[in-house]
């Protein structure tokens, strides 16, 4: 059987000598699945993303991307992953094309291939005609689409997104959510999507609930609801969070 797109085992992390920001985290994202990482603000989602994207490393636990250990084979592991960060990461003064080609160069994609893929990727997001506009002239929703197109340029098997809809209006949010779901269905890309917004999660998605640095529940939405005895994911989530507060 093929290795999961992302597997994390026994991952803990503390900032300095402070309390644990993450404690013994384990999760798996299978190929072609949409997994939502659901947690309130401050739950540890951003720390987990910093570790998955190797901004820093944890001395304990392992992170494997498509079977490649992030600590032992960082370049192999990173090459298989596309990332959309929570903060905007585009050069505002450069055009959409220049931004995408810069990213492609970092991934060693030959220029001609990069040009073709950039155009194809933007087309799918309805952004092809904006390719020569400077990013500064685009609105927030369009900038996010460009970041999504960029994250797909090197054809990753895993796409990780850290609260990618922050600051977007409702239609822009819906467009991004739907597009990423379609990537799972149509292209078999595995997605890890961090959010604190339950309405971004579809009934047949998988969900991992994180709170205070620990995983509280994980599995298909229906299983999580069954285990908590709730009818909706909102109820499940509230129960899982409340249980800790009590």
């Amino acid at each position: 059987m093929a290795a999961p797109a992302l597997s994390i085992e026994g991952l803990s992390y503390a900032y300095g000598r402070g309390a644990f920001a993450l404690k013994d985290v384990a999760l798996t994202v299978e190929a072609g699945s949409f997994t939502a990482l659901l947690g309130p603000n401050g739950a540890g989602k951003t720390t987990l993303f910093a570790l998955i994207t190797r901004l820093f490393e944890s001395p304990g636990g392992t992170i494997r991307i498509g079977g490649a250990d992030l600590r032992r084979e960082p370049t192999r592991a990173l090459a298989r992953m596309g990332v959309v960060f929570q903060q905007p990461t585009l050069d505002l003064d450069l055009t959409v094309r220049q931004n995408l080609l810069y990213f492609a160069a970092l991934h060693g994609i030959p220029r001609r291939t990069a040009q073709a893929r950039a155009l194809g990727s933007l087309e799918q997001l309805g952004m092809a005609e904006r390719i020569d506009e400077t990013v500064r002239t685009l609105n927030g929703g369009h900038r996010r689409r460009v970041e999504l197109a960029r994250a797909l340029l090197h054809e990753p098997a895993l796409l990780v997104l850290d609260e990618p809809t922050v600051g977007l209006d409702v239609p822009a949010r819906r467009a991004i959510v739907e597009h990423v779901h379609s990537l799972c269905r149509e292209r078999g890309i595995a997605v890890l999507w961090a959010t604190h917004l339950i309405d971004e999660i579809a009934p047949d998605d998988r969900v991992v609930v994180i709170h205070k640095g620990q995983i509280r529940a994980s599995g298909p939405v229906a299983d999580v609801n069954r285990d908590t005895g709730a009818d909706t994911l909102t109820d499940s989530f509230n129960r899982l969070i409340a249980k800790e507060a009590a």
């Binding site: 901004l55 370049t75 990173l78 990332v83 905007p88 970092l106």
Partner: peptide, 15 residues
């Protein structure tokens, strides 16, 4: 780094 494009650079598959 605050804006994130340094993170974009550091996440590329190179040493």
């Amino acid at each position: 780094r605050e804006m994130g494009s340094m993170r974009m650079l550091l996440v590329s598959p190179l040493p």
